[in-house]
Design a protein around this nucleic acid. Structure first.
Lengths: 389, 389
DNA sequence: CAGTTATGTTCTTGGTACGAACATAACAAG
DNA sequence: CTTGTTATGTTCGTACCAAGAACATAACTG
């Protein structure tokens, strides 16, 4: 509500703040705590909550009493309240889940797909199978950049700027779509390792590196919605040509493709991920060639992270995908090379480098976040309150 | 005002929005236009403006009548309203200026300094010479990172993490300090080449490269206030060791130091800037060795810009310092190498690369912006309204 | 069992923006 | 020169909001 603001909008605004607080909180809180949190009176809080309860957005349940004072109620999502559906669309499979206010997630269905845009229709059917009047919004995580918000490019499926407006038609629920690496980062920023950070970075390391800059819990999208291709900066000095059309990309030295290339296989997609996992297993088993491949990967990763830290000064950096393995097995290599790439004056407070806390669920959780973001605003809440009185 | 919000705060909020609009507008606007802009009624606008006039924050002057309708007034800064002072602190000199709401700037004094922290005391004296009750806040642009907002490091003056809290004491006016490259970028984003951009980058090219990421008109500061050291990423493949302690920095190939090194001089500070300017002049005169040095500089610049564009997806990039010369004389080289470093799928909409519009005044104008930012908020305006009724 | 404490509830109050109706000062057309 | 048109200013009554004070309530404590 950056624009007009009447006293009636004030109420809505506080209700949105309250819903947002409930959604973002790590633990449920009581109505009295909510009043303190928002800086409003107990009487006002009661009025806000009352209306939200009527609109089936919040529900009050008796809080287990602790200490003195009149017992109060815990604010929880309404059992008949709106749901966000979240879809994680991967190379061969998809997952559909329902997410309540507050982030509680229930997996609804998973399926395989044929790697063609038909998959979207299948997913729409799956959504229909689980559709309920409670469904309010759908978040969709895919891979590859979505230019200008509607042209989807997934190179490993051979999708060349597929027009999303044709795949996601008017029969779809309200839908928000974004790419997996960005959404995984967003999820870490909201509910994972990057929670509470003002400036942070997240990288998902798969075949190559995708990532996102997170500022105050929001993922940055760039001018054409294609921000985040950190893997395509020449940060580790590779002499090779990248499939993206540029020479020397960081992704040539970090990720599954780099591991595979080391063992004489042609980088690409498909079975490459399993090959990379095998390299990790062998390295864990102590095989020296595999270990040294991991060393190189970790060194290049660290070097790039240090360079990015110079420019962007993150408080913390989280990793997902292969990054989790690298940090588990080669933390020291990463940190050493990161420090070496950091400007000297900042080596005494390097960014924390950590594994993401949401693991494989990152993109799905991130999709849920952007879905909820799309409705946790004055306009939607206002309409909801008006329709349910 | 993210926290409490009563109906009284609503008025303040709208008044801040109005002041912000006046400050940010390219051209003055009338009271009726203001009402439309803020989405409020004419009556409300009259009330807001009336109070702001009484607080000597806004002034109404008759607008030259155009077309039909009752004549209205133009909203301009109050002639006795608050002033921000802005300081640009450079290698050997400083400039002090006064800036009104809306950005109108008056230079007050310039001076030289002895390159020691004494300079701050001299500047404080100069401020005192021009001090008026109208002075509300001081913005200060310096060079070098200011860690955690209070430890200033200026390597070319040999200042190693000077404690700002000792230099800027309680006898100073309310003071906001930041580094020149970041402030120059902010100024471009607010009043220059990057105006209105959601995502943009600015780079100041001097001995090396400093810059800032600008999102929705705000410069990003990072977790320790040291974001912006883009020059210390290995973007152009230099094999050399950088003075910052890292190998391969972009700054080794772009900027005055790179030009100087090419001609056998030791990079460093002092006379280097003039040497670099001489190289530029010689190149303009057609001297081939100088021209080729410029080519290399421009190529490395373009390459780095492309890499950064992949990651951050700016709509536009502006340059200051030596960058202005490079873009004037070698635009094509920069753009060619930028395109080459861009991922293929985005080469058809590369970021606009342009010279900054504020030239040498960038840091000063940026300092004025952060100074005004510090007071154009609910708390300050509320206090001002309360004290002047 | 009485006192303490934290919270819920009720009612009054000051303040806000809005809408409608009217006033005003320019221009335009005859 | 007069009358209509147009955009803006002004006044007044209305709906709404959050705050504050006073009181009620339900636990715990000693």
């Amino acid at each position: 509500m950056p624009q007009t603001m009447t006293s009636a909008d004030l109420r809505i605004r506080n209700q949105v703040r309250l819903l947002r607080a409930v959604h973002d909180a790590a633990e449920p809180f009581t109505r009295a705590e909510a009043a303190r949190l928002l800086g409003i009176g107990r009487n006002t809080a009661a009025a806000l909550v009352g209306e939200l309860e009527q609109a089936r957005l919040l529900h009050e349940i008796p809080a287990e009493t602790s200490g003195r004072g009149r017992p109060t109620t815990l604010l929880v999502p309404h059992p008949e309240g709106p749901l966000a559906f979240a879809v994680d669309f991967r190379e061969d499979t998809w997952t559909l889940a329902a997410v309540e206010l507050g982030g509680a997630i229930t997996e609804l269905e998973t399926g395989e797909h044929d790697r063609t845009p038909n998959a979207f229709a299948e997913i729409r059917t799956a959504v229909a199978r689980h559709e309920t009047p409670r469904l309010a919004v759908l978040g969709f995580a895919t891979s590859g950049p979505i230019r200008d918000g509607h042209r989807l490019h997934i190179s490993h499926l051979g999708w060349d700027e597929v027009e999303l407006d044709e795949l996601i038609g008017p029969d779809w629920p309200r839908t928000v779509i974004d790419n997996d690496a960005r959404l995984a980062g967003l999820a870490e920023a909201r509910r994972g390792a990057l929670r509470g950070m003002g400036t942070a970075l997240h990288f998902h390391i798969d075949f190559d590196i995708g990532g996102t800059l997170l500022l105050a819990g929001d993922a940055q999208r760039g001018g054409h919605n294609t921000a985040g291709e950190f893997g395509h900066m020449p940060l580790s000095g590779s002499p090779l040509q990248c499939m993206c059309g540029v020479q020397g990309c960081w992704s040539l030295d970090v990720g599954a493709n780099a591991l595979i290339r080391r063992f004489g296989e042609t980088p690409g997609y498909g079975a490459g991920r399993e090959l990379a996992q095998e390299v990790v297993r062998r390295a864990e088993a102590g095989e020296s060639e595999a270990g040294s491949a991991l060393d190189d990967n970790a060194a290049a990763l660290g070097k790039g992270l240090g360079a990015l830290a110079n420019a962007l000064d993150p408080e913390a950096i989280s990793l997902s995908g292969l990054g989790v393995d690298l940090i588990r097995m080669r933390r020291e290599v990463i940190e050493t090379h990161c420090a070496r790439a950091l400007m000297e004056f900042r080596r005494n407070e390097p960014p924390t480098i950590t594994a993401g806390r949401l693991g494989e669920a990152g993109p799905l959780r991130g999709a849920a976040e952007v879905a909820w973001d799309a409705i946790l605003n004055a306009d939607w809440v206002k309409a909801r309150l008006a329709s349910r009185r």
